[in-house]
């Protein structure tokens, strides 16, 4: 009797479980299918491509790790990695730092505040390619707007895109300008979510402006910054349009980042294998950063 009851209970549990799993499969299945076809399969296929020599037309020739060996021992790949590091760190730092400054400014009672917010956000909605072309005119060292402004204060514009020392700075400026509004909007939302009471309590405790910023604002914004770091870093890794339009990775290779190197190898040199190596390195780099950030967020990010 006891055994029969247990069996019935097990059957009920099992049946309920089955239904739950079926529901789970129905909900997850379509997405899993799409991810498998459009994400995981290309990822695996890319891994395979990184070990062949292929010009997209002829037969694929298995070369093992030769593509990796080539990129890491010859050519300018280390320079490409360095460029990617410089671009990403500068862009993320500037977007988050300037974003915070502008957001703090726009969080105050200002005349035309909503209009200014809209203006600050508007570059986010513009095409990177069109923006790149406009900025080429602005930064032109002979007739650009910036040159005219610099001339007023007795300075000459650098030759932004023909000087390897300035070219990277030029594309970073434009990338930051395009993405600043996004950070401002996110940080503004975070600022407004911090309870007023905390500021009032800090004020009662005698905290000054810096103290309130350090003890209330920054901790309150930590989940926002965690989110921003990840999203702006991913956007920086992927930044292609501005570089393509403004410098095509040059002069020499001064603005060739991993994603641009991938394009160069794949579509200009038609070397699928070496392009795939760039993709593998990009994937591993981003995966590692994401893991670190996730671990960091578990320990240090405060959710209000």
């Amino acid at each position: 009797m006891v055994g029969t009851t247990t069996r019935r209970a097990n059957t009920r549990v099992s049946s309920a479980e089955r239904k739950e799993w079926l529901l789970f499969a129905l909900l997850v299945g379509p997405n899993l299918f799409l991810f498998s076809v459009f994400t995981y399969w290309p990822l695996l296929y890319n891994g395979y491509l990184s070990m062949v020599r292929w010009d997209f037309l002829g037969p694929k020739v298995w070369v093992g790790l030769d593509n990796f060996t080539h990129l890491f021992t010859q050519g300018d790949f280390s320079f490409v990695l360095w460029n990617t590091f410089v671009f990403t760190v500068s862009a993320v730092g500037l977007i988050c730092g300037l974003g915070l400054a502008v957001a703090l400014l726009l969080n105050r009672s200002l005349l035309w505040r909503d209009g200014v917010r809209a203006v600050v956000f508007s570059p986010v909605m513009l095409s990177g390619a069109a923006m790149g072309i406009v900025w080429l005119f602005i930064l032109d060292p002979r007739y650009g707007l910036l040159d005219i402004l610099l001339n007023y204060v007795g300075l000459e514009s650098p030759n932004w895109f023909l000087d390897t020392r300035w070219a990277m700075a030029g594309v970073i400026v434009v990338h930051v300008w395009k993405n600043l509004g996004y950070a401002v909007v996110i940080i503004l939302a975070g600022l407004q979510a911090i309870p007023r009471e905390l500021y009032e309590a800090a004020l009662v405790d005698g905290a000054g402006a810096w103290g309130r910023f350090r003890a209330v604002t920054l901790p309150g914004l930590s989940p926002i910054f965690f989110f921003l770091f990840i999203t702006t870093m991913l956007a920086s890794f992927q930044s292609f349009d501005i570089i393509h339009v403004m410098t095509e990775g040059g002069p020499v290779n001064a603005t060739t980042t991993l994603i641009y190197n991938l394009y160069d190898e794949a579509f200009k040199a038609t070397r699928a294998g070496r392009a795939a190596v760039s993709a593998v390195v990009l994937f591993l780099g981003m995966f590692a950063i994401t893991l670190v950030q996730m671990r960091f967020s578990e320990r240090r990010v405060h959710y209000a």
């Binding site: 991810f35 994400t39 990822l43 997209f56 794949a266 699928a272 993709a279 994937f283």
Partner: peptide, 12 residues
């Protein structure tokens, strides 16, 4: 994985 792969897996 999707986030990573969408960015990195640029195979044709």
């Amino acid at each position: 994985g999707a986030g990573m792969a969408a960015l990195a897996a640029c195979a044709p």
